[in-house]
Design a protein around this nucleic acid. Structure first.
Length: 156
DNA sequence: GCCAACGTTGGC
DNA sequence: GCCAACGTTGGC
């Protein structure tokens, strides 16, 4: 039995990798996640075909920029072993890799970016502790309920 | 560029 | 296992 489709938010700094970059390459290994909670979501929660919203962070107008799908199961992030990579992790061992990633496939850009400022207006409906509207918003990969997904998409 | 909030590290 | 110090994230 195929598991029911799940929904996720994945952040990226557009200066590093934007929705336009994803559109250009079509599919991308989501390298560089170095947070255990975010890793666990990718490793333990994601299934091929799940829906993903791509959020642009740390930029002029932060917000949701596009849609993607999970395109692989989790596997070790190769950049953790690459001394030339900014994501190199000297403490990770090849026998027991510390960091995992999934491939993400481009679906579409939103017709317009949905600014965080606008998302905040729906903080109540999105629920207490929704990572984008909670204080100290740092988590870069997190699940969305179907209701949250639909609400956010309805803002497009 | 500032700085609050957070996760991680490491000494004890 | 505590917790202070530190580095990073990310909105503004």
């Amino acid at each position: 039995m195929t598991p029911r489709k799940r929904y996720w938010m994945m952040k990226s700094e557009p200066d590093t990798f934007s929705i336009d970059d994803l559109a250009r390459v079509g599919r991308e290994p989501w390298t560089g996640v170095r947070n255990y909670q975010a890793r666990n979501f990718m490793r333990d929660g994601m299934q091929v075909g799940d829906g993903v919203m791509i959020y642009h962070s740390n930029c002029k107008v932060p917000g949701i920029a596009g849609l993607a799908t999970v395109a692989s199961h989790a596997y070790p992030d190769p950049t953790q072993f690459d001394p030339d990579s900014e994501y190199f992790d000297p403490k990770s061992r090849r026998e027991s890799p510390r960091w995992q990633l999934v491939d993400v496939a481009f679906e579409r850009k939103l017709r317009r970016l949905i600014p965080l400022q606008e998302i905040r207006r729906h903080a109540d409906a999105l629920g207490d502790g929704f990572p984008l509207t909670a204080r100290g918003n740092r988590l870069s990969v997190f699940p969305l309920t179907a209701a949250q997904w639909q609400l956010l998409l309805s803002l497009e």
